[in-house]
């Protein structure tokens, strides 16, 4: 094995993430996976990979990488930032080919996460069926941790496939600025009516503590109707748990599988990629929808994504 992507600067928190480590909730293993799964799939589609293949997730600050293989096709998607190949600006949402020795650099990211997919993917052994990194328990990804300078990421392919590069006609619409949609519950009766009203009418700000485990929010306190704790039960990504201080925490990919705080509402599947792009200081609003509306939104997003990927063009 002599084909690598070499890490010169790792960025702030760069990890390998894929569609997630699904199906191990019953033994306490977090799903992990991309915070913005839509952008992960876009980056993979652009280089012809399976859409859920492992890619680099860079958080807030991109990295600097040297190509240590004959040629490498790669693509960036997600929140953008100044992206260069040997100091020449190049674009997101399309693939590029780099030659041996060339340097790919992404500077500060105007959003939370950007994804870099490489054609053929990384030659990393899956753990429990996934390449995703769960740093808290050192499971999966590259050595179970975020990337460091001088890491050498092994590549499956020594050179780019022949043929043209691809571009997406436009990113799948992210509907920025719109309220995040929630389905109330699973424990809405454990909160006062005023708390439910407050959640749906007042803004919440993403705090500095936001990470891959959870997005801590700050705003008007949500009052419990009685007990402030429950006998632990299951969590899922998007659940908004409310500890005793009344400040909600939206659970993300690296969450615990269960927890003892009541969950007032759950962000719908179709809006999770938007929450994944929320940076500290972002103001969020929440809107309640029926579960049937949430399912329709998930279906429409999948349709929009397939339509967008179907219109990729040669460049």
């Amino acid at each position: 094995m002599s084909d690598f992507l070499d890490v010169i600067e790792p960025g702030l928190f760069t990890t390998v993430q894929d569609r997630g480590r699904l199906g191990f909730m019953d033994i306490g293993v977090a799903p992990s996976g991309a915070l913005d799964a839509l952008s992960l799939r876009s980056a993979n589609a652009l280089v012809g990979n399976d859409h859920g293949e492992g890619a680099l997730e860079m958080c807030r600050l991109g990295g600097r990488f040297r190509v240590a293989t004959d040629s490498l096709r790669f693509a960036f998607a997600g929140a953008e930032g100044r992206l260069t190949l040997d100091d020449e600006p190049i674009a997101f949402w399309r693939s590029h080919v780099a030659r041996r020795g060339q340097v790919i650099h992404l500077a500060a990211i105007r959003g939370n996460v950007a994804y870099m997919a490489v054609q053929g993917g990384f030659a990393i052994e899956p753990v429990l069926g996934s390449l995703s990194t769960y740093t808290r328990s050192a499971i999966g990804g590259f050595k179970g941790r975020r990337l460091h300078a001088e890491d050498r990421l092994p590549l499956n392919q020594p050179e780019a496939n022949p043929g043209h590069d691809l571009a997406l006609p436009h990113p799948v619409p992210a509907e920025r600025g719109r309220a995040l949609r929630v389905v109330l519950g699973p424990h809405q009766e454990m909160f006062t009516d005023a708390a439910i009203r407050t959640l749906l009418t007042t803004p919440y700000t993403v705090t500095r503590d936001a990470d891959r485990i959870g997005v801590r929010l700050e705003g008007a306190a949500l009052e419990h109707a009685g007990a402030k704790e429950i006998v632990s039960d299951a969590n899922t990504t998007g659940c908004m748990q409310v500890p005793g201080n009344g400040q909600p925490i939206a659970l993300m990919a690296d969450r615990h599988s269960c927890g003892g705080y009541p969950k007032i509402a759950t962000i719908i599947t179709a809006d999770m990629h938007r929450l994944g792009q929320a940076v500290p200081g972002t103001t969020l609003r929440f809107e309640a929808v029926a579960v049937e509306q949430a399912e329709a939104a998930a279906f429409m997003l999948a349709e929009a994504e397939a339509a967008t990927f179907g219109r990729m063009r040669d460049v």
Binding site: L22, G23, M25, P31, D233, A234, C258, E292, E295, A298
Partner: peptide, 22 residues
């Protein structure tokens, strides 16, 4: 997608596009 028997409940994670809540 996944299921977890718990202290007092069973949780089931499912794909909303392939299997509706109803």
């Amino acid at each position: 997608v996944a299921s977890m028997p718990g202290i007092r409940s069973l949780a089931i994670i499912h794909d909303p596009v392939r299997l509706t809540t109803r």
